[in-house]
Design a protein around this nucleic acid. Structure first.
Lengths: 343, 343
DNA sequence: TCCTCCAACGTCAACGTTGACGTAACCGGC
DNA sequence: GCCGGTTACGTCAACGTTGACGTTGGAGGA
């Protein structure tokens, strides 16, 4: 019960002394290496058990030739965000298979903070890093990569060469959403997007444009709202859209919280059954609302799994050219995206 | 771009050679210790910069007298669960202040898996552990604690002595919810609970009983449903309740997913405006539903912050008697809990 | 002038472990 | 009985860093 200083952790030397062998032999037994007789193995095991010996991985990885720390870093934007949390969990599940533990951090989408976390991981000599790149420059990531650290980018691709990535079909799926709305007869489809610096936002906007172009709709600048930071901004932006002389009949909200904000305004104005809405990113209870919210659902576990597979392949020494995996998002029809235009 | 084996990480020796000083002096400069002249400091800094030197924390912590790894472990039930994710994030935020990184793991509420993760953390010599104890025995936790590892339990208290904990007012808040419902005139208040092995479930059930007792309502066994594992079980359980000859007029759902399941059934039967509902644990969009869902909201960030404060105090050597912090949950009125009994 | 003291360095060993290599004992074969 | 090979150990040094403890030179005081 005392402070940890009270008891000293037993070392191989202690075990060796008790088992009356050399530390090297203890090492062999602990690591299941050949070169120890069965009787000695038993003696060492017994000694380790009675002392409560547990190997010191930091010492081990310092000395080992492969230098593995059996630890990887996962740098996301915000661990409390359900999207990020699901990603982390998927990576963790894969890591566990290899007995690897995960150091997790939130970059807050701040390149400086990300750089700090990156060096923090580096000083701990992690075997690899899975990272959701913060907006703005990726200098720190590139530098880390050029030092040879295995790295995989998730959700957003690298702006430099030679690094694996796993992303969602942001552009194609956004286009599909617009096509779906246009197919119902909507002609004035608004776009509400997140911070423009985010790659995903840009892609989804591009997809929106492609959707318009494919259906021969003209782009109306007044129907575009970007840089919406959180639900409140989205809520007021939606209000300004609905106040237009010719308001949109359908909304494409390119991010989770933006969708929520837009929904609030529609609901306040009792337009939720008369204005179509498709959101990017699924969220819990989207089906319980009235109408159910039609969304583009990302396969987050697949995203994480893929990223984990890639990083572990690189750690294992895979030298193949950089992979850029793309995981499809699917349109989930729940009602809000199926509201027809008035008239 | 090659494998990491290509380039060797520069060490203090390399920096020392370039700056023409001893490694010890480099150590002094890196750690901002006195005993290095300003000119030498500059030379060493320059050398470190040109070589891209970064200290090796594993070697450092192996050698240092305090043995700090500047890393703590956080073992939760499921990192992808929003509750757990918010907890992790709160701990991370506090940890960052001390330059400490967080090793995160999901125990799946499985004591064996938790034990494995625990030894994984132990071999990495983490400075402390924040853990959401898995149901069943806490032997592994107790053993780890008895070895002297600083430890704080969150959300569920220890079944052994001498360890800090942070929990929510499960019992009192549950009682308040029942009192609130009874105050509106409800006489048949059902209880729907999670796995009975969970301490939180038991507490919430006890609070329910206290609530009944305080208002002179008699306990009706047929209104109790426990061991509901996820929304589906809750959904069917709610159906059986509503099929009773004398169905409940109010539901107290003691967990997140149970609340969701109950809501689905109420909605299916179009009883959501006629049956009162209070749930334990808030969830996103609870206010967007119709009616808004009245919940007992736990202050998850406070829970995490408190746990982090406790663990860092212990790591810093705090020897005061075990603390058992309790964070209040608050009743958030949104409508579903304010539905009066029929008649 | 000499001695003390301190700042600014350096030397050495050790943290717990493992790679490289040494060695003694034993086995089978001729 | 000797030789080559193998098995089961042990010895030693090193991984990168820092604590303990030197050493040096110069400032300052008596």
């Amino acid at each position: 019960m005392d402070a940890r200083s009270a008891r000293r952790e037993p070392t191989m030397r202690d075990v060796a002394a008790l088992a009356k062998v050399s530390t090297k032999t203890v090492s062999r037994v602990i690591n299941d290496l050949p070169g120890a007789g069965s009787e000695v193995v038993e003696r060492v095991r017994a000694a380790a058990r009675t002392l409560g010996y547990r190997p010191n991985l930091t010492a081990s990885s310092l000395r080992r030739s492969d230098r593995r720390s059996a630890t990887i870093g996962v740098l996301l934007e915000d661990l409390s965000n359900p999207f990020d949390a699901a990603l982390l969990r998927a990576v963790e599940d894969r890591a566990r298979q290899d007995g690897v533990l995960v150091l997790a951090g939130s970059s807050e989408d701040d390149p400086d903070l990300q750089r700090e976390l990156l060096t923090s991981l580096a000083t701990r000599r992690v075997d690899g890093i899975v990272v959701m790149a913060a907006g703005g420059h990726q200098d720190a990531l590139q530098q880390e990569r050029e030092r040879g650290t295995p790295m995989v980018l998730v959700d957003r691709p690298p702006t430099f060469d030679g690094t694996d990535s796993v992303t969602t079909t942001n552009r194609d799926s956004s286009r599909d959403a617009v096509l779906h709305l246009a197919g119902l007869g909507h002609r004035r489809i608004a776009f509400l997007g997140d911070r423009k610096t985010l790659w995903t936002s840009q892609e989804r906007y591009t997809g929106y444009l492609e959707g318009l172009a494919h259906t021969g709709l003209t782009l109306r600048e007044e129907l575009i709202r970007t840089d919406l930071h959180g639900p409140d901004a989205a809520q007021t932006a939606t209000a300004t859209l609905l106040d237009l002389a010719e308001p949109p009949t359908a909304l494409f909200t390119a991010q989770n919280l933006v969708t929520v904000g837009a929904m609030r305004t529609l609901r306040d104005r009792e337009l939720h059954h008369r204005t179509a809405l498709i959101g990017f990113d699924d969220f819990p209870l989207a089906d319980m609302l009235d109408p159910g919210v039609t969304v583009l659902r990302q396969d987050v576990p697949a995203l994480g799994r893929r990223a984990a597979e890639l990083i572990f392949a690189r750690i294992a020494g895979d030298q193949s050219p950089p992979a850029h995996a793309v995981v499809p998002a699917t349109l989930v029809h729940r009602g809000s995206g199926e509201v027809p235009p008035p008239g």
